[in-house]
Amino acid sequence: MKKPRLGFFKYSCCAGCEFQTFYFQKHLMETLSSFEIVFARMISSGGTPEGPFDIALVEGAITEAWQADELKKIRKRSAVLFAIGACAVNGGIPAIKANRPEIEVEENVYGDLSAIHSIRPHPVDAYVPVDGHIRGCPPGERDLYEALTSALFRKKPDFLRQSVCIECKLKGNVCVLVTFRMPCMGPVTNAGCGALCPSYNRACYSCFGAMKQANAPALARRFRTLGMSGDDIARKFTMFDADSIEFRKAAELYED
């Protein structure tokens, strides 16, 4: 059987997802040998972004207009397209600026704004339909594996949609929120990391973003009873997924 043609595209992000996919993840060798890597800047220069692709992985948030234009072309050339990583899935770190006027952010960073064309940050699926989200920062191994094997097997992927708590309990971790009163974001965060932070007695900080329909305001109010300041709570809900409806509702409770 012919190897599926894979393209990896990067917008506003750290390129960590591409590194995770081609350098760090557990099934690295199988990935490199099972796909024809047609375009992936972090493993080789050259290659053509023209496609066609059997599978396209897109990392990074969309923060400039040209990115959206290019993304739409890639979508047309790709049989399946997955958003990979917190930035592409939720806006991620670039979306920290999502709720401030663009000019304010630009002036904060740059002196001369004449060459700056940034737009409000959005996830990839704000501009093109996607076949699924490989969440996390860096992307979770389970969903990455599911995406790659699904492309090879030509089936629809089955991504995790539940809360981190389910994975946490399956691991038998003691709950850091209930036991140690840590402000853990696990209950409202989409699973996929294997409850990594709570396994090391650390509170989840939601790098996988909001679980759909999560009741973030209820958790934010719970954090308040732990003695957290309103500012700190608002930051919790704007760190990785500031653009989501779920977290917006929580941040709004405590934003000035």
């Binding site: 990935t31 099972s34 790659l148 094997t149 090879l152 809360s163 389910i166 999560a214 209820a218 109010r221």
Partner: peptide, 30 residues
């Protein structure tokens, strides 16, 4: 509205909750 987080902790710690999901996993060499 006020409190439930849909986090499933209740279900996971419940000694009588029996529900399961059936999941297939493919090896990458197919």
């Amino acid at each position: 509205d006020e409190r439930c987080l849909s986090c499933s902790n209740c279900v996971m710690v419940c000694p009588t909750c029996f529900c399961y999901d059936v999941v297939d996993e493919i090896s990458m060499d197919m």
